[in-house]
Design a protein around this nucleic acid. Sequence first.
DNA 1: CTCCCAGTTATTTTT
DNA 2: TAACTGGGAG
Length: 729
Amino acid sequence: MSDLLAHLNPPQLAAVTLPAQHALILAGAGSGKTRVLTTRIAWLVSTGQVGPHGILAVTFTNKAAKEMQARLAAMLPINTKGMWIGTFHGLCNRLLRAHYREAGVPSLFQILDSGDQLSAIKRLLKNLGVDDEKFPPRELMHFINAHKEQGIRAAQAEAYDDYTGRRVALYAEYEAQCQREGVVDFAELLLRSYELLTRNEPLRRHYQQRFRHILVDEFQDTNRLQYAWLKLLAGHGGTTPDAAGASVFAVGDDDQSIYAFRGAEVGNMRDLEREFQVANVIRLEQNYRSHGNILDAANALIKHNRGRLGKNLWTEAGAGEPIRVFEGFSDIDEARFVVDEIRELVREGVSRTQIALLYRSNAQSRVLEHQLFSLGVPYRVYGGLRFFERQEIKHALAYLRLIANADDDTAFARVVNFPARGIGSRSAEALQEAAHRANSSLYNAAAGLGGKPGAAVGHFVRLVETLRAETANLPLPETVEHVIEKSGLRQHYLSEKEGQERLENLDELVNAASNFVQEEADTIANNGDAGALASFLAHASLEAGEHQAGEGQEAVQLMTVHAAKGLEFDVVFITGLEQGLFPHENAAQERQGVEEERRLMYVAVTRARRRLYLSHAQTRMLHGQTRYSLPSAFFEEIPEGLLRKISRAPAYAATPPSRKASAYSAEALPMSQTSANGWRIGQNVQHAKFGCGVIVAAEGRGPEARVQINFGPGGMKWLALEYAKLAPA
DNA sequence: CTCCCAGTTATTTTT
DNA sequence: TAACTGGGAG
């Protein structure tokens, strides 16, 4: 046990060995947060304060849950499988499977991922004859999820106007449809298990007494429902706090809260402190990742935010290099600089996997990729389609879902005519119609219809029935294999010209099933083969798999700043640091928007271990138009002394820029972009009220003429030339 | 049913 | 610019 606590710094040690009371750990970037969390659990268990049974550890991502699981397995001589360690959604799934009757869901309920949910909503609108122009499915989905994440059911939702009234009604219809089909979306997993525990007192007491210690990772990312769920499990559910409740150990960093846009409430940190009367707030401020200059920059930047819980990172490592700043005259120029610099670093021996290229939005990767590709630098882009989201995989899973639950209309609609078997839109509509009238599932309607609108529908029903019968006693991997074969999926992709990769993925699905069976052997043994299929399907929905994109080993890493959270690299390039892009212009409108952008920048900066580059471009191709921007306001928020402006290394300076000759001078800008009244796009101007800006766009002539100006911190403004008092700057 | 064209739109994303 | 969607034609 003593080596368990060895090498912990004083605050870390204090956090790990805190008595069984509520605690809030403010863990700065690179301060050993995961280590504290796992060591805390290991310490609690190995000192006999609590059995593995009494632990509940919650994370946001499967990756984090797995890492915690693995580290614990290495620290403790016991089987860690008995502990409840997982994501919010994974744990709720577990709860609902265990108590499906009490929760009012079928034993083999299916989980809709966001794509499935969207198709379910589209189908609902079609069935009800609702105009999807007036009620865009995406918007409705967001409306429904936002309500669920606030713990609000359709019955309680406020209809403050006619339009919202309609949306609430659709929310109610959606709930009914899900219930009928025996499916549950992501938000529903949480809400349903929250309601289960609220309404079922014996069950609630059982879990409240069972879990003695609740540990939460990335607490700043919790939404309201997740917080309420934690409160309930910790015994803070009723008006009378339960004396026998669990101790909550929450670890988070308000400065790294970057998911407000999807419902995260940083305020939960303060609420926890207040409502749980947290006496133990511990700050982990010693950073083991970055050199001093990088931390100083991060600290100075984040100081511009208000209402922080407060934290200042420091390191024992030296100051290190200054932060390098580069200004390109175009996005292409910027990319060229970045790639030249990368090649130089690689030549000096830096591993490409230790170089990260970060950007605010995915579209920015294009130019960078182009440059990397043309100079033959291996790279890997994060994001994009993941394994279980690929269409061939979703198709195969849909067949499996129908076997497990014939009422799953989303799965039915997906594959009833895939591979094509002559069930076109008219048969599909007839089916929808029949199902709607009979208030039954598509599958039942199809079975009841017999063979009337063409034998094809009957064929499909029989196919599914045959598949179900034939796979009833097969082990999971064989079931998957069988379904791929007999559904005609393999045949279909065999004859498709681009089908090769899809076939490989289908084979990979069989492998995934084998691995799953092996890993979950003990869990599955209790539930039988039907249980194995259901848990595999849940696994597929809850864990979409790796962001697979060219597993190239020695490759430069490209990703959005969001995707970089939690990662670290020796060398980091933050690109596109321009006003309007980063901070993003849409954020200026949102409440607290700019502060969230600043936290995003803080996350980006603190990814770097040894060297940090900040780059921006004067012009950039955006939505097919050339945009002119000022450097990001964030440059002003970092002490000048930490920054060093650099220009291209002499050897590369000679490379002729392609898009425009002679950079850096406004005169070089194309005259075709000249607007009325002598003002030019790209020109720097001064405005009495808004200060300095750049003309970004222009329209109209004479007295109608308007120009759009990017005023940096002042935002983007359209001004009529006739009235605006502009002066050249 | 499939293919093609025109129109639309354009932060960030895990489960 | 480019990617995706929906509608219409073959």
